[in-house]
Design a binder for these strands. Structure first.
Ligand code: FES
Ligand code: FES
Lengths: 145, 145
DNA sequence: AGCTATCCGGACTAAATTAGTCTAATAGGT
DNA sequence: ACCTATTAGACTAATTTAGTCCGGATAGCT
């Protein structure tokens, strides 16, 4: 199955939450309890997101995290790279992981590279404002599926 | 990380292998040893692919599997659905798995539905002839990345 | 009929990854 | 000082994925 992991899921959730708070900072505790995410886990996630500059951290009382970019400037690509490193849609695309004996002539690495590129493009084209939808809007969008 | 599993990887590999054999059947043993895939595992994979009609099975000596569709008729969507069921890019999109207390108002299910739809469209648009490339062609295609 | 090569399908085990916890430290505001 | 909150890394638990095993069925060949 092709699936996004929880870090990404929670990351999207947290950033959308922050988007609703305008310029105010929200603490990890606040976000975690409102979003139903384990606090310590979200804490790690926010750190990584901070390290790529999508949010800034404010220490101390009334502190927390604040958005420093527009939702339209935050892409799913940037978020997943922040949380999991570069996208590698198949294991053997990772440098130094190619255990396959076929190596250069391997018939799967080329197709997977093509697919990888497509996913990267899709994730790059998907900024968070694209995902900022209400449940109702979403059900319209996917009505056919 | 967003990653396709080995079943899908091996499935693509096997189907591309069959495409090169024209109308001749290839046994699981042959495919497995040529592609460097565990034989018993590939066996299960081919069964699932057979069940959706992309290949047919020939019993007995000189038997094996044969392609019954054109590569252009085999989509990545069809293949992954054959091997893993419907695409669900996030865990909570599965019916009956929504343990989240927010349920209906949950702020993550809508965005993930949007993303899911995008992935489904991409996989639907990606037929196997798209992936039937040589290593050289592929490196051109991804040169910029 | 009997032999052999192959597919079939489920139950099982092993390996790897992901999810989540714990602990101790640092930073800043009041 | 004290309180709240971030930071960072090591650790454990849970889940998923990958891979094995085995008894059985099917078809062709001699
Ligand atoms: S399986 Fe990736 S190089 Fe062969
Ligand atoms: S996390 Fe999926 S419904 Fe809330």
């Amino acid at each position: 199955m092709i699936r996004v992991n929880k870090k990404i899921e929670y990351g999207v959730l947290a950033l959308l939450y922050l988007a609703d708070k305008e310029d105010k900072a929200a603490s990890v505790r606040e976000m975690a309890s409102n979003c139903g995410v384990p606090e310590t886990l979200l804490s790690k996630i926010m750190q990584s997101i901070k390290n790529v500059g999508y949010v800034s951290a404010v220490y101390g009382n009334q502190g927390g995290y604040k958005l420093t970019k527009e939702l339209s400037e935050i892409t799913l690509l940037g978020l997943t790279e922040a949380l999991d490193g570069p996208i590698q849609v198949a294991e053997c695309l990772e440098e130094g992981t190619r255990t396959c004996p076929a190596k250069a002539s391997c018939r799967i690495v080329a197709p997977m590279n093509v697919l990888n590129q497509k996913i990267v493009e899709l994730f790059h084209a998907t900024s968070l404002d694209t995902l900022y939808v209400t449940t109702e809007e979403a059900s319209e969008k996917v009505a056919v599926s």
